[in-house]
Nucleic acid binder design. Structure first.
Lengths: 233, 233
DNA sequence: CGGAGAATTGAGCGAACTCAACTGACGTGG
DNA sequence: CCACGTCAGTTGAGTTCGCTCAATTCTCCG
């Protein structure tokens, strides 16, 4: 059986070692284009191997709220192990490579191998920790702090995947999407990001951003790797 | 082995049948006084048999954010199955009766019985759904809508447990706690609840509340049982 | 009666929203 | 090659929501 280790709390997803072990699983690779549904099948789980995706739910009047951001190594639809019909979907924010795993197959694997059980539980619990962090952000941070928090969080998660060069990284989200994630209006999101730029905390327009002053940014965001993270490794 | 059924999505917790089956588990009953820590042990999970509790995390400057509300039948600290040191705690909002279950024992039980696995997974995923609902609330609802949403949600969850008489129920939370849950200031929470009262949507001060006009309340809150719930039952 | 915690009220301010217009990049078709 | 449409980003002006900083009432309990 596979010897999974605990998913890295820093990266919020599967580690490289885990992804390598994933090869032992009965899975299927798919490429999803930007804007498409990442999790079309209800009988399979979907693991992001590469690319950006976000979970969202549609609200009244055409609005929507993005409830989570997924990077490579993360499982997008763990809920499918239990519930088939949630009111949320997962959309690709960039071209994505996705591995599909049958829920039935995984369920059987978990019963056979306690390390796999640990992995699955850890991923689910991690999802909760991430969600709690977002709740804390929404409940206690101003717009500027939210934006700062977003960039801090992003740098950590991308850094853990080796997707940053220096403090520079690609961000394939439009400001509309960013505003739906941060729970702000588009206009205010724009002004807020500009403020971070003009204060010399970040730089970059369009798809490429760079963190200039990580210390001040974290201080502004009261970023403390949030809910713990590292555990009984 | 136990024959657990899926936890009720309506109530967000264990059903009566599940609680009855719980007797077969190796557990220990404890009474926690209001204000005390519900989950002191790190080697045990804690299931609320009766009472109110909330998960919170302390922020800078003495502030805190309540990230989840727990009613009877809910597991408060599922994260202990994976991570030992989270930055959050669970506090009793009223006197609580709590069942402690050893994490090791549960882990073994899950590997032996697929129904128990389903139960555990369902509970964890349900936590996520609840958290997503809160994120949606924070991201898209005004103060008044948040408060209305809170009462709608409460009525459903309490109703599923038979803890309402008519639309009347006890709410053992102070406005300070309510404000920490809704992500508003105490003053604004007070005014917001008053507004709901003066508009004839709810009634009641102190610890006892009553929903007068559920239709209007739900409409105001855009409450639609939120992230769905019922599944492949 | 005094004190503590909870709920309430008032006044003023600042953050975030709304509405509306405008720029710049890009692709497509005449 | 340029006119045009579209979409992302930006800017301005005015309004409203929610916050801050008091101070005051109410309730309960010793």
């Amino acid at each position: 059986m596979n010897h999974f280790v605990k998913p890295s709390a820093q990266s919020n997803g599967l580690s490289d070692a885990e992804l390598r072990l994933l090869g032992a699983f009965d899975h299927q690779d798919v490429v999803i284009e930007s804007g498409q549904d990442v999790c079309p099948s209800t009988s399979h789980l979907h693991i992001l191997l590469d690319g950006w995706a976000y979970k969202y739910t549609l609200l009244s009047e055409g609005r929507r709220q993005i409830t989570g951001l997924h990077l490579s190594g993360e499982i997008c639809d763990l809920n499918k192990m239990c519930f088939s019909a949630l009111r949320s979907s997962v959309q690709a924010a960039s071209q994505c490579r996705v591995a599909q795993i049958s829920t039935d197959w995984l369920r059987a694997a978990v019963l056979k191998d306690s390390a796999t059980l640990d992995l699955l539980l850890s991923l689910s619990v991690l999802d909760n920790v991430i969600a709690s962090n977002l709740i804390i952000t929404f409940g206690s941070r101003t717009a500027k702090e939210r934006a700062a928090w977003f960039f801090c969080d992003l740098e950590v998660r991308l850094g853990a995947r080796g997707k940053t060069s220096g403090a520079t990284f690609r961000l394939p989200l439009t400001q509309v999407e960013l505003s739906q994630y941060l729970g702000l209006t588009l206009v205010h999101t724009n002004r807020t990001v500009q403020a971070l730029r003009s204060e010399g905390l970040i730089d970059g327009h369009g798809a490429t951003y760079k963190i200039i002053d990580a210390i001040s940014l974290r201080s502004l965001a009261r970023y403390e790797a949030d809910q713990l993270l590292p555990a009984e490794e």
